[in-house]
Amino acid sequence: MKGWMTRVLFLFFRRRPQGALLLLLLTAAAQMSLAALWHGAKESGGQVPRVEALEIPLGAQAALFWPEGRTAPLKDIRVAKSLLLQAVESYTSQGTLIFLLVSPESRPELGWSPQGKGGFLSCGQVPSLAVGSLGFQQEGSVEGCEKLFGRSVITPFPPPEGEPRGTWELLWLYPGVDPQSFRWEGNPQVWTPHAGETLLAASLKAGRGPLAQAAILLLVASALAVGNGALIGYFARRQRYGALAAAGVAGDELGFLLVGDTLLAVAAGSLLTLLLAGALSFWTSLHLLPEVCYSIPLTFLAALLGVVRPFQVVKKEEVLDLLYEERRI
């Protein structure tokens, strides 16, 4: 970029209080709304209100299913009292986690080498589960789990009805899954493959909600950002590019100035956005900084998309279109 371009760009920015403020606010508004919508979508898709305690008697098999392609926030699944899942910090992109709670006396018959009072088994595509000294861990396929803990295995060891040997509180479930679908009344046969399918369907249905919501919100926010870029291009073209062309600025230079003008406005808006997000994080519990970090580059991209047409006009030396109102595109 030539020296005079930098000078002109900064002069433009410094000397157009209303225009600069408008563009700056538009940019910041687009970025903040994008971040806020994103944050909202993440919240609605990533967390659900506290689920009522779910009682799973010892010897029962419970399963959590989540839709393929979604991230299961395993660290949010906590089983109170057991400590079995509290240490889990791994994420997995898809699959099925089955955990089995068995009575201590059943473990030897299953061929386990107990390390403590509880028993725990994870199956499916769970990369690693650190379950602590109280747990028992084995990784493998769902088929492997079924082979080991299919009905024939589990049936001999149901807990006596009405006498749960332990109570486990599942505080967090996969987002959107109706906790009622996990309630089990003590009959191990509920957890048949058929029940699993029902649960999977429920999970998939629940998962679609946040996904669709997030997609719509993202679309709205992106439209805001692209519109912002288009406005920047419009204002830039309308207010000063004809005058620059009249002063002898060449088409390619006008193109560079237009892009520079846009980037400068978005950069200033981004600075304001970062300050706002920082202030929100500092004084409130709303932490938008991570989302802002995504929304800023997106807004830059969107703003550039918005000036594609004006850029084409000035770059192709269509200076007359800038000079004469009736010919302006």
Binding site: R7, V8, R16
Partner: peptide, 27 residues
């Protein structure tokens, strides 16, 4: 040199800066 009916002065630049602009362009 061009003179247009609509003047086409850059609104953000002072009068002398508008006049100086073509000279800036020439380095």
């Amino acid at each position: 040199g061009f003179i247009f009916q609509q003047f086409h002065l850059v609104p953000e630049l002072l009068a002398w800066e508008n006049v100086a602009l073509p000279m800036f362009l020439m380095g």
